[in-house]
């Protein structure tokens, strides 16, 4: 397996008036070429900050404190203006939760394509760009006449398709999808997930799927990283994670979801609520909510370590 993206000891904080909010704390993660890596977490777990960091899109008040992100051996975090702009789009592309905010409402879809393509590729004329646009629209299942429409003329699901087509237009290797279906209805969500699965194979992409939905991850991902409070608490193959969750937080997440196919199951809810990032508990940040917490958990922060069975868990129980 070839590692396409490698995050090392990344720490990102937001400096607000109320103090420093530590969104990502000393996080390391490798993404293998061709895999779908699911990153699950609640709001405030740092998963969206991670996406922005990978895209090189962090802006004040956010600041990278330590660490590096290597894409094919080059550190994204030390890249400047033109270099990173070239990387975005051509190498790494992002799909956002709300396509409406990332599409300019007064521009036709064709102009979005032309602008995006000509900006990133040299020696390409509008005609060629339009050809790519037509091809992309076809592959996401929208007829090419709709290139002449404006964003508001599309339904939510169609807009997300357009966003996906745009993201793939420059033939990137790595796709970052941040909650791509959260704003959509169940049926449309299912359609988009199917589409993403198909395109991933068609374009041989590496996919990082960021979501809060355990169901979406189970259906899409090869490996899952569970984030809590700015750290990865568990990382393992999808089947293993769901069959035998190790970290008490992962366990809690899985056991607290009502299941349609097993309705008699008693839900076990995680007590308490996610902590304030400006005031993270000492030791293991999950310990105030953990039913298995013991002395050590309050004082020593567990590292994400490879256990005997080849799984990564950050917990003193193992």
């Amino acid at each position: 397996m070839e590692t396409i993206l490698s995050i090392r000891n990344l720490s990102v904080s937001y400096y607000t008036d109320e103090g420093e909010a530590r969104a990502i704390r000393n996080l390391s993660l490798d993404v293998e070429k061709g895999e779908t890596l699911g990153i699950v977490g609640e709001s405030g777990s740092g998963k969206s900050t991670l996406a922005l960091a990978i895209m090189g899109l962090l802006q004040p008040p956010a600041r990278v404190k330590t660490g590096s992100i290597y894409y094919k051996g080059r550190n994204i975090l030390s890249m400047q203006g033109e270099e990173i702009r070239k990387l975005r789009g051509k190498e790494i592309a992002m799909i956002f939760q709300d396509p409406m905010t990332s599409l300019n409402p007064v521009k036709k879809i064709r102009d979005h394509f032309i602008e995006y393509i000509t900006e990133h590729m040299e020696n390409i004329d509008e005609h060629k760009a339009l050809e790519i646009a037509r091809k992309m629209m076809k592959s996401v299942g929208i007829s090419e006449e709709r290139l002449d429409d404006y964003p508001h003329q599309f339904s939510g699901g169609m807009r997300q398709r357009v966003m996906i087509a745009l993201a793939l237009a420059l033939n990137p290797n790595l796709i970052l999808a941040d909650e791509p279906t959260t704003a959509l209805d169940v049926l449309v969500e299912a359609q988009i997930l199917e589409l993403v699965k198909r395109l991933k194979n068609e374009f041989s992409l590496t996919l990082i799927l960021i979501t809060h939905n355990m169901g979406v991850v189970a259906e899409m991902a090869d490996r899952v990283a569970v984030m809590y409070c700015g750290r990865i608490v568990e990382l393992s193959k999808t089947e293993e994670l769901y069959k035998n969750p190790k970290h008490p937080y992962t366990k809690g997440l899985i056991e607290s979801i009502p299941l349609l196919y097993n309705r008699s199951r008693k839900l076990v809810s995680i007590p308490g609520h996610p902590p304030d990032l400006r005031n993270i508990p000492s030791g293991c940040s999950f310990h105030p909510r953990c039913p298995y917490a013991f002395d050590k958990c309050m004082n020593v922060e567990p590292e994400l370590e490879k256990k005997e069975d080849g799984r990564y868990v950050a917990c003193h129980l193992y």
């Binding site: 209805d185 049926l187 969500e189 169901g215 089947e239 196919y261």
Partner: peptide, 25 residues
């Protein structure tokens, strides 16, 4: 039927035939 079958299931073992209706509301 479509609604029930298209809910993402948080269990990779469960494989179902999805019946996703085309189009949107």
């Amino acid at each position: 039927n479509a609604l029930i079958s298209s809910v993402p299931v948080p269990d990779p073992k469960v494989k179902r035939e999805k019946q996703i209706p085309h189009g949107e509301v």
